[in-house]
Simulated assay, not measured.
Amino acid sequence: MTRTPAPTPTGRLFGTPDGVDLVLTRTFRASVEDVWASVTEPERTARWYGRWEGEAGAGRLIKVQLAFEEGAPWVDMHIDACEAPIRLALSATDAFGNWHLELLLAVNDDGTTELGFVHHLVNADGVGDIGPGWEYYLDNLVASRDGTPKPEFDDYYPAQKAYFEEQAAAL
């Protein structure tokens, strides 16, 4: 059996006045509206991240089931901003910390849609654990849209940990 090459990490860390941003991008040959649906519609988010319940809209609280985490736990997420089809900002607090996430969509000159995923961090602590997870989830999104096999988390972690830790050390 031929094994596919390990995925190459793409995330970058940027210092900000408020901390550190972990930024990952993916490009899709699809309309911005279609990509927006992939990151906002419960039946589509279930394919790559987890389903969610509740009433969507800025200022609202939803429940998200993390389908690819051990035990498939439910997490309360606050919708901080929802500007269809270009910006979604979410926040949550769980046993692992505070999560401030932003999804930014833009149409490129060639008609493709770029998804910019930003995890706003207070500092770079733990980014060696966080970065590979987001790489996995976004590649899971790509696979769910393309109809290709889903990635294996073991191909991302701990293999990509050093990549993110080196960026953190350089900040």
Rank of each mutant, 00 (worst) to 15 (best):
L138H: 06
P149R: 12
W99V: 04
K150E: 07
N123K: 05
T93V: 05
E102W: 08
S91D: 04
L121I: 10
G116R: 01
A95L: 06
C82F: 13
K150A: 14
G126N: 00
E114N: 10
C82G: 10
S144M: 03
E152V: 14
A143N: 04
P151L: 15
P149E: 03
Y136K: 07
E83N: 15
N98K: 11
E152W: 15
N98R: 14
E102S: 07
L138K: 07
H119A: 15
L138V: 01
H100D: 08
E83T: 06
L88E: 00
L101C: 02
A143L: 11
D109L: 14
H120L: 13
L101I: 05
D110T: 00
T148E: 15
S144W: 02
W99C: 03
T113R: 04
S144Q: 02
L141M: 12
I130G: 12
A106P: 04
A143E: 05
E83A: 14
T93R: 02
I86V: 13
S91K: 01
I86W: 07
H119V: 02
C82Y: 15
G131E: 03
D129W: 03
L101N: 00
P85W: 08
D109A: 04
D109I: 01
L103E: 10
N108T: 03
L104V: 13
A92Q: 04
L104Q: 11
L115G: 05
V142G: 14
V118G: 15
F117G: 10
A106R: 11
E152T: 09
N108L: 12
A124F: 00
